[in-house]
């Protein structure tokens, strides 16, 4: 939208603190970006390595979750 003549926007915007910690919108955004990159990344890495990524890290896989159900 075009501003009418004779009016301008402020030169300095207030720097409000954006919380990075906790259950906030900013935290969710960064976590989601990391997860998006992560999921594609894990796919590609596993394609290349032909092994599970958790195995590479060192976890023992295939033992099942010992949930008393």
């Amino acid at each position: 939208a075009k501003l009418p003549s004779g009016v301008e926007t402020p030169k300095e915007e207030p720097k409000l603190p954006t919380a990075l910690w906790g259950f906030t919108q900013n935290a969710e955004r960064w976590n989601s970006r990391a997860a998006m990159l992560g999921i594609i990344g894990i796919f590609l890495v596993e394609l290349i390595i032909q092994k599970g990524i958790l195995q590479v890290i060192g976890f023992e896989v295939g033992k099942g979750l010992n949930l008393p159900l």
């Binding site: 301008e8 402020p10 030169k11 300095e12 915007e13 207030p14 720097k15 409000l16 603190p17």
Partner: peptide, 20 residues
């Protein structure tokens, strides 16, 4: 006190009024 949001906003508003 730029760490208090309302004060920071008031400061910028003052500046905008002066500049306008």
């Amino acid at each position: 006190h730029p760490e208090v949001p309302l004060m920071e906003i008031k400061r910028c508003t003052e500046k905008y009024i002066v500049d306008s």
